[in-house]
Design a protein around this nucleic acid. Sequence first.
DNA 1: TATTGTTATACTCTATAACTATA
DNA 2: TATAGTTATAGAGTATAACAATA
Lengths: 168, 168
Amino acid sequence: MNLRDNAPPRNSRGKIISDAPPVDPAVASRSSPLDALIGYQLRRAQLATFQEFIGRFRPLKLRPAEFAVIMVLGAHPGLKQRDAAAILAIKRANFVALMDRLEKRGFAERKASSADRRSYALFLTDKGRATAREAARISERFENSLVSRLGGKREAAKLMLLLARLTG
Amino acid sequence: MNLRDNAPPRNSRGKIISDAPPVDPAVASRSSPLDALIGYQLRRAQLATFQEFIGRFRPLKLRPAEFAVIMVLGAHPGLKQRDAAAILAIKRANFVALMDRLEKRGFAERKASSADRRSYALFLTDKGRATAREAARISERFENSLVSRLGGKREAAKLMLLLARLTG
DNA sequence: TATTGTTATACTCTATAACTATA
DNA sequence: TATAGTTATAGAGTATAACAATA
């Protein structure tokens, strides 16, 4: 018995040729089994929101993490690296390069703490505070846009409540 | 005039020593200016949800992206790589290694399309379908847990509606 | 001994350009 | 000329281990 004759047909890359008709991608893209999953819609909404955030902050050349650090240092001047990183849920090892960049761009500075000579007290510079004010304006416009997309303040508040329940 | 005497005090790393008292981290972590931002809460909720997802799927050794591919191929057998990647918003270049891993683990297979010899038709194997069923069970339990955390089906449906408005 | 900032390192995810074989 | 799959590569983000200075 000739095995070669019984072997299924293969293409140039050695893959077995399928008899199944191709799926219409327009149909497939309209209904994915993932669409009903909370986690999947959460990820999609978060991705879309961050993409727009990045676009709106491009003029300031601030990435989300950099914006977050500037906002936190603006609200809590004198924070030490360990605590700033903890607030933002960033590992202290990864916070170093982030802070280096902000310092190099003249937005923030590390001052030695007189109480504990191992640690720094972090502050915004004048330039950093000016950038923080402009960033806050952009953020507020973005927030207003999101609220209106959600259908108003009550809907936005509802979303925040529900998200908080997921965050634990 | 002695410039050295007027220079501010510095620590061993050359940083100016700050006079400001250190911020109480317990206070700071309770109120960050980011807490009021929809995008920030969205990110936190998404991170927490994905962390739990990863934990629940550890027994199956499936990452979120791998779970997603298996679910999509289960629902749409014969999809070609380009369309599977498009449905999941993954670049086709990045889909290759993902599909390689699923194929190597015996969950999925590439079959050559008879219509277009450039492309593959993607299918789950028997093992892949069994894994998909088990994954669907884990996913359903996780979904039920999320719904109950949200306060019930009406609340969950509301969240999905609001998230869809953000996704655009 | 423990902690702060740091370096080094690794792994995932994502993004782009360029190649090949087909169409 | 354009498309499907692929490779190579680079950039973020994230995780751990280990070290020096300091507590």
